[in-house]
Each structure stands twice: as C-alpha cells, then as structure tokens.
Design a protein around this nucleic acid. Structure first.
Lengths: 346, 346
DNA sequence: GTGATGGTGGCAACCGTTTGCCAATTCTGG
DNA sequence: CCAGAATTGGCAAACGGTTGCCACCATCAC
C-alpha cells in the first residue's frame, strides 16, 4: 500500500463524451444558435427573458464554450505564451508565479515553453507557440535584438529584464538597491570592492555592472571587475582565486547563485564570511536564506515583474491605451541585509 | 542607459499581418486545398512531384498551419494541461522541467495553471483548461479522490505523487531510498529516530511515513512520530520542541523544506547538526545543498516523474497501448548523503 | 483490346463559434 | 394614428483546416 511501483496497467482513456454545443442549447431554448452566442457573450444585446431561458438551458446541458471554435473566427485565444530560457533557474519561479496570477485574473491562460538556454530553440519555440497565443512574454531571452524586434512585429510582445529598441520591456530600477548596497558596505568600512560579472552578453549583467560602477564613487569606493563567468554556483565558485588576488574586502556578485558559490569556495578555503570577505548577491532567489551565513542580497521584485509584463501584454492585446503610468508603482530593487556582510576585520 | 525606469510609453501592438492559409498555398501550387492538407500531414499520400511543389509553395509563403483551425475538426490540440498546486514549491521546478522536455519531444505544448493550494481553484482551473487540452497532468492535487475520478472520465489524466483508484498515476518507489536512509542512520549508531510528518491529508506524507514505519524495525530502530505540520520551513522550525522532547538522535522529515527549517531551529538553539541531531530530508530540492551542513536527503527523481507522467498522458492520447512496461525504468528514490547526518555524539 | 487495380487529386461537408446584415416587432414622439 | 427609431432575433457567410467519397488516369495482366 505504501509505495508499490506504479502499476504498469494504464487506465484506458475515458471516452470523452462530446460536449454540448450552442446548437444543443439553441434547440433546448427554442432559439437560433446565433442568439445563444449573443446571449452568452454580449450581455444586454438580447431580451432579458430570452437570455435567462438560454442561460438556463446552457446550465442544464452543462454547456462550455469551445475555445478553439471561438478562436477560429475571432483569432483570439485568450492565451499568452511564456518563453523562458531555463526553468531550473530559480529566479523564474517568482516571475512565472506573478505572471500566472495576473493572467488568470484577466481570464487568460499561460502557455509555457522552455528554450533550454539556446537561442535557436527559443526561436523555434516562439514559432511554435506564436500562432496559437495572443501575445508573448520573453523572460530572459537569448535572442538577438533584431530577432526580438521581428517577433514584436508579429504580435504583442513584452520582454523581461532587458531593453530592446522599440519593444515593450519590463525592467526594475536597479539604482535604489545598488545604492543601498554600496552605502551599506561603505558604512561597514569597505573601501575596495569587486563586481563579479555574469555572462558577458547579458543585458542585465551589463546594467548591474554599470550601475555599480556609476554609484560607487559617491560612496568613496573603488570597484574592481572580475569575470565574466557563468551565472551559476560553479561560476561563482571559480572566481575565488581572482577575488583573493584582487585584495578586495567585499564582492557584489551578478546574482545569488554566483554569490552562494563564491561564499562556499571562500569558506572551503578557510576565509570567514563576512569576517574576511563580505558578499552580496542579486535577486533574493529561493534558498538564498538557506546558507550560513544567510545571504545579503539586492532583491528584485520578480513576482511583480512577471505580473507587470503580463499586464502590459494584455493591455496591448485589449488595446487598452497603456494603463495610466500613474497607477503602476515603480519596480524598485531593495537591499535585504542578512548575514553575509559585516565590517572588515581588523 | 543603465537602469532608467521602464519607459511608460508602450509600443503599440504590431499589426499582425494575417498568415498564409492552405488556400494561398493551394493557389500558388495550382492544386486543391485538400491536396495541400494531405501533402503536409499525410506524407506519401500524394505524388512526390506535387508534394514537392506544394512544400516549395508553402516555404515561399512562409506558411504555418493554424493549430486552432486544425483542432476544430480533429478535436486535438497537441496541448497538455499541467495543474500544479503551488509554483513556489521548489519540488515542482524539476517536475515541470521534465514534463516540458518530454512534451516538446513529442511535439506537444504545455499549458500551465496554478491552483494556489486550493481545491476549489484547482477544480476551476481544470474546467478552464480541459476543453482546450488533449490531456491533464495533476501535480500535487488538492482534489478529493472522487473529483479526480470524475476528471479522469472526461479525458486522459495522470496524477503525480498520489494514487487514486482507477486513475493513472506516477509515483516513485519510496522503499529503496528510505531503506538506505534507515540503514545509514543505523550504521551511524542511531537507535531512536523520529518521522516529522507533513500535512495529514497528503497521500505522499502517508506513504512516506508508512514506509519508514515498515522498514525501521528491520534496522533495529524505534520510530517516534511528530506532527503533522505544515510542509514548510516554518512547519519544520516549529517542530523543534517536540523533537527535543522526544529524545531522538535523528529525524527524517517529510520534505527538505521542513528538514531545513528544523535544522535552522536546532542550530539557533545551540544544538549541533549532525553532532547532537542528525537530519534527513526528502526530495533533494534546489537549495538543499546550500545549507551548512549540507542536507542529507532522499532524492526523488522529480524530473523523470514529470517526464513519465507526460509520456503516460501522451500514450493515452495516442492510444499507444501502454508502453511496454519493460522499457520504463523504475523510478527509484535514493539516499544522497551529505553533511547533516553523522554518528551520535558520545 | 479490355477489365481490374492502384495511385492521385478534386469536391464538399463538417468542426463550433462569431458577426454583418436584415426583417419583424415594439416603442416613441408628434 | 402614423412615421421613424430602437429592439430583438434569424440567416448565412466566414474562420482554416480535415477527411470520406468519388472520378480520373495510367498500368498491368490476360
């Protein structure tokens, strides 16, 4: 009873009783199918009494509109494609969650495609889902700018964490969190820090690096640059030599994964964190508080980013003339101080 | 340039140039639309020369089949619904990834719906996606058995991590990993351990607990049961009092999250892990190796579970007469020994 | 030369909605 | 009481494919 191997006997596919159509409802209510269609999708267009009769008939027959049949004449599927580079990257979880939430709120369904970090597969996946979705959200696209622009011409499209000329994008404001992080380190007495770069061709990596470089001087800090390296645990881990060689007392890593990898490597080498090396990550991913010490990090409002991206895409689709900017709260990053930062050891 | 706030000016939705249809292709190739349809989907049915001519025309016009239009007469969407209770639960990542992979491999697309841990929302979501997918995979359903059975009557359905009478399910074999875990603890000298229960109504929790209870005696160990508690960090954290009171030297938690919460609480209370308390988790989720010490855990082959579930669903849909059981390798759990287990302190 | 055979490709119906157009009916106001 | 407007609901044509059925033609064996 506990855990016998899943029995090999598959249960046969249930005969899907074919669903009621508007014709059935029409017959039951004694009206024309077109009237049923209107009763169900254009409230007020027809007489209240007939509408009620139709509603009742539909309920009786347990009628459900066939989305495919509707999509044919209208060209609208009430479906949104979400293209993500790598489901395994924990930063996506929150994005997906926010996206899912906003989509269901507006009656849309999410179609998921993973490109496994490959631009080619991503283009392929985009082609595959494009004809059956009303819009597309690209989460951390590996596509070139012009490919993205082409895609944007073919339908509503929103990119997350990247800016492409002429394409809608949702990007958080990096400066607030980075300023806080730098101020925090300055306060702790650090004067020489390093930015540990992620992938060289990543728009977000460049943005983060530039913000750090731009804001450091005003805190009286010198910034060395280390990397680029893979945005993974191992990428961070491998950077330890360079970090030690650079002689800095604190590191701002491109993302949490690298920060955690670096922390591990430092500890394995006998360095104390934060005693001898302070480390700050980026994103505040799931698990960044599992480490000892817990990771100090610049949180990105991932959930709200996903939500906003979907909202934008849906506004485009519904031709809502761009939600008044006033209602959209800015997407701010914010420093979360935990245990991996401290004052420099005497 | 670095990170100005996302500009409020939305780029207008590109006018989606309407795509070429088989009629366009037919005209270009000088044949009947039905011939185009056959050329494209029934290889060999028509003359090689004409087929080539049609292929060429299709390529020229950049023709793509309209999935919705195809779905109407055939009733098949080449789409699979994935219902998950909570995207945020890290155990889903791997499941989703495996599912996505197998789905694309077979030319299917995944439609995602989250039920936010609510049975009601789950039923709703199922209703919503059901008419537009060819099958359904339930990841950690909050539905009652009979609701699931009803759903199974309406179309191909597979449940993950749960067994329901008469419904296809994919569940890993728990015994191997649990036996290894118990043997491992026995070898380290533990004789009194506890099982920290997750949600009382969870099928998987019951299965794990029963396997532990069933296998412990043969290792000469006494098992106390603690809980039930929420399957979260806090749920694990809150159990520390009960664990201490029970006087056991090792704990097997329902899942990794609880194990990590418990570890944290133990350490905060000055207990050494594994010195005074050994802890084993379940699943080997992302981040379970971020902790200090890294978590020893019984790994569940989450990715393969997702893959298998999709395979099963697709076999059901394609009426493949249940893949010969021989080809399916069993889904075994396996103990991953890391740092959170050790011999009992003198 | 003829009838059977098999390979090709056209015809038209159908899948379940939506929607423009129009006819019939009811409601207005003068 | 009547013309004109507003409601209401039916008709039929899409939307873009699939597929059963049939006709045509070239072979082929006899």
């Amino acid at each position: 009873m506990t855990d016998e191997a899943a029995p090999p006997s598959a249960v046969p596919a249930g005969r899907r009783a074919k669903a009621a159509t508007i014709y059935d409802v029409a017959r039951a209510a004694g009206v024309n199918p077109s009237t049923v269609s209107r009763a169900l999708s254009k409230p007020g267009r027809i007489n209240v009494k007939t509408e009620e009769r139709i509603q009742a008939a539909a309920r009786d027959l347990n009628y459900r509109l066939n989305p495919m049949a509707r999509a044919l004449p209208t060209g609208r599927t009430r479906t949104l494609g979400l293209l993500i580079a790598d489901i395994t990257n924990p930063m996506f979880f929150n994005v997906v969650r926010g996206a899912e939430r906003e989509a269901t709120r507006r009656g849309y369904t999410l179609v998921l495609a993973e490109s496994q970090e490959s631009g080619e597969r991503e283009a392929e996946a985009a082609e595959r889902v494009l004809p059956s979705v009303d819009g597309l959200v690209l989460v951390t696209s590996r596509l070139a700018d012009d490919q993205i622009q082409d895609l944007a011409e073919r339908g509503p499209l929103v990119v997350i964490n990247r800016e492409v000329e002429g394409v809608n994008s949702v990007v958080p404001e990096l400066d607030p969190g980075i300023e806080q992080a730098l101020a925090h380190l300055a306060e702790l007495g650090h004067t020489a820090i390093a930015f540990l770069s992620g992938p060289a061709n990543s728009w977000m990596n460049r943005a983060r690096r530039e913000s750090v470089l731009a804001n450091a001087p005003s805190c009286g800090m010198a910034v060395a640059e280390i990397g680029p390296a893979a945005p993974t645990l191992d990428g961070g881990r491998a950077a330890i030599d360079a970090v030690v060689a650079s002689g800095v007392t604190a590191v701002l890593a491109y993302n949490d994964l690298m920060a955690i990898g670096l922390m591990r490597a430092a500890q394995e080498r006998g360095l104390t964190v934060p005693g001898q090396l302070s480390i700050i990550g980026f994103d505040d991913i799931f698990g960044s508080d599992f480490t000892s010490p817990q990771l100090t990090t610049v949180r990105t409002p991932l959930g709200r980013i996903g939500e906003d991206a979907v909202r934008r895409a849906l506004d485009l689709i519904d031709d809502t003339p761009t939600a008044p900017a006033a209602t959209e709260e800015p997407l701010l990053t914010e420093l979360i101080v935990r245990g991996s930062t401290g004052s420099v050891d005497g």
